[in-house]
Nucleic acid binder design. Structure first.
Lengths: 196, 196, 196, 196
DNA sequence: CATGAATGAGTCTTCATTCAT
DNA sequence: CATGAATGAAGACTCATTCAT
């Protein structure tokens, strides 16, 4: 009827609705009934597409990470130096957060609730994403751009942590004192001077 | 009988128990009954010391932050240069995480569950802590140690983010590939080269 | 299967069960679980039909009053004199109490427990019922049947109080010394001689 | 110290406090702790004077009824005719309600909550009080003042019900349209014309 | 007599999940 | 595929009562 892309119509509607609801009330305080209502779907319908409530959150995360990783790799593919790639990574990460507030909020905050996630979820997708950083650093060390003493496995945590905290700041602060591009600039400056 | 320090005996026992239980099962999956049992106290007794379940988490956080801020300031007070202070801050932060795993886990993970916390809690204590970093940077800019172009308000987020992510890594990874002192060293190297 | 009138089946079953349970143990000592069990319904089901425990009591009262008012007005409609109407009101009121003991007990006793009811509940339905009396008296004063000095607003309280106390007596006494029809007769005699 | 009548000081303070609290929040919603606080007494102290929470309500009622019965009998003793006595009973009953609002509220409303009271409590004191009415009627029938056909056992319920409902009206209505003395007058007129 | 900290049984209510239609 | 009424397990919280001091 009013569906053009057929099969995944409902599934997508549920995911979008879940992102909105989770971002509004948090994972634990959100109810499946509320997500169903927001998606204009019956409560039971959700269980035709997702195993359980946790599964919605996991899917939300994995779908998003897949998109982000794909887009990020594409952005980086055209660049020559490792420095350019690091700068682009920083810019793009923060831009993605900005473009999709609701989802970002969910990932920044709610995702960390589920013990499954932080303690049990192996998080391949997440690791893949963060490993983009270490592979750039590796590349930079091989071609002499970056200091050989830096351990990529640690440096990736250092940079990702900075970006994540900036994202948090961006998502949670009501009045943002600094623009995202300024944040990107300075973070790039600090990190790159630091590892060169 | 079995009480030596009197008044705050029960309150402390409940807090310790809560830290253990929260760290084991997460905030939402922990029950008040379980905390009570772990503290060897009746369920109702908890409500003599805390307003509700949320209040236990908040108190856990605030108590710990107060201690951490106090200790941190003392550690820093004897040092001369801003660089030394930054290095000490990094070392001490990671060391504190290491010394008190359970509490760290709670603060790293569970605290972020409560929407109250991340979205509504004004978090003076937390801000105070992070602001220690920006005041060191300020100091370093005044005496010429650090680059004047760096904006302390952003740099503090950058460094805190790195430390926080390292802490997360430290708390969550089962097999830690890098020692804490190595992490501290490299983080200090990167950040300080970055802002000098 | 075992449902013949469909939609309101459960709702009615819950109300009937509540009347039984309340009449047995009183409102405060009755538990929602017990009502559910008596209605052969899951605990949670009750909350699909009623906002909370108080709401069950309120509904019980309002539903009953609506029925009573309807029946009473119908009974009175065919009568000519105000005196006949007063006598019929008295008879019918006591008869209704007698016909539905459980509900009467709830309304006589349990209803008065909820402060909401006696102090805050505006009680339109209840007022409507009692006002039937004053309008009959008014009518009787207009056509010269009753004494003009009687204030209908007070007289209605006087008569309703008598009937209510008789109902109480009827509901609570184990051994009833006087028949309902005798009570109705004498009450009518006293009240009518009194206002003529 | 600040006690002049010794022994019953605390007991009285608790009873007064209970009357205030019950009248404010109702019996079931009042807590023993709140009564203790209002009486400026420790929670446990209450159990030195009363068996349990129910016992406070019962005592409140019985103490008050004893006083009321004593006062009522004294008022009536000087009067000659049964008619005068009925009128005095009506006036005094309503006046007592008016003089002690809080207690009246408790007795009018809260007392009826406890199933013990309405269904199990034998209520000697209460019966004694209501029987004052029937004995006056008896007396009036013997000396020819009242109609022999009236059954005192029913008439007492009729009059007491009227008075009780008027009391209720008086206690619960915010804006009282009719003065107590007018109510007393009309009630007396109706009842007395009715039984003469 | 008085205290008030401690107890723990008891209850309402929520909500993820199922399943008959 | 879709529905949404029904389920019932689970948990936060209250409060009358006790008892060591």
């Amino acid at each position: 009827m009013n569906s053009t892309n057929g099969i995944n119509d409902k599934r997508q509607r549920i995911l979008k609705a879940a992102a909105r609801v989770f971002s509004r009330k948090g994972f634990y305080k959100s109810t499946v009934a509320e997500i169903a209502k927001e998606a204009q779907v019956a409560d039971g319908t959700i269980y035709l597409y997702f195993k359980n409530k946790d599964d919605i959150l996991i899917t939300l995360f994995e779908d998003e990470m897949a998109t982000v990783i794909r887009e990020m790799k594409q952005e980086l593919s055209g660049l020559d130096t490792a420095e350019q790639k690091i700068r682009k990574f920083i810019e793009k990460h923060l831009a993605l957060i900005d473009e999709n507030r609701e989802l970002a909020e969910v990932i920044q905050i709610e995702l960390r609730q589920s013990h499954k996630f932080m303690k049990e979820y192996s998080g391949t997708k997440f690791r893949d994403y963060v490993n983009i950083i270490s592979s750039i650093i590796n590349e930079g060390q091989k071609n002499g751009e970056f200091n050989q003493d830096i351990i990529p496995g640690i440096a990736k945590i250092v940079l990702f942590g900075s970006l994540d905290e900036l994202s948090n700041y961006w998502v949670l602060s009501k009045r943002k004192k600094y623009s995202l591009s300024l944040c990107a600039q300075i973070t790039g400056d600090i990190f790159l001077s630091g590892i060169k």
